[in-house]
């Protein structure tokens, strides 16, 4: 038994099936596609989350807020609301971009490592076949 080879096979199998499952899924994408998808997801999440926060705030404090309000105050509030949304979206987009870039780089590194291990296993296979049939095709 080639213990080294068995260890390598176990390591590869464990990576593919368990430890690096998510990373391998990520590594299937192109970088721009993956980042674009994540930023789009982030946009929807932040929009929904912000709407919920504004809804909760208005539900809890709406009456007190609208008492004796003027048009100028309303404009200011709307501007603040939109500004807050844009700022939140910007901050979370930057955060998402950074985290996803790191994740993608890690996934690609893992994929390269896995490919290298598989190549080594294939080389082992070929050398084993050569040993089994040393004179094949020579006669």
């Amino acid at each position: 038994m080639d213990v080294k080879r068995i260890r390598r096979m176990v390591k590869v199998e464990r990576l593919i099936c368990r430890d690096a499952r998510e990373e391998l899924k990520i590594a299937r994408y192109y970088r721009s596609d993956y980042l674009g998808m994540m930023l789009l997801k982030n946009f929807f999440f932040i929009t929904v989350g912000y709407m919920i926060i504004i809804g909760l705030y208005l539900a809890a404090k709406g009456d007190a807020l609208l008492e004796g309000i003027y048009v100028a105050d309303l404009t200011f509030m709307v501007t603040m609301g939109i500004g807050g949304y844009v700022l939140l979206l910007l901050v979370y987009s930057v955060l998402t971009y950074m985290i996803c870039t790191l994740r993608f780089a890690k996934a690609k590194k893992l994929e390269r490592y896995l490919d290298h291990q598989l190549e080594l296993l294939q080389e082992d296979d070929h050398s084993e076949k050569d040993v089994k049939h040393p004179g094949r095709g020579t006669v």
Binding site: F45, V48, I52, I53, L56, Y92
Partner: peptide, 14 residues
């Protein structure tokens, strides 16, 4: 539910 959802959206998904 809203608390869990907001926690997920703003923090836990990272």
């Amino acid at each position: 539910l809203v608390v869990f959802f907001l926690l997920y959206i703003f923090f836990l998904r990272f």
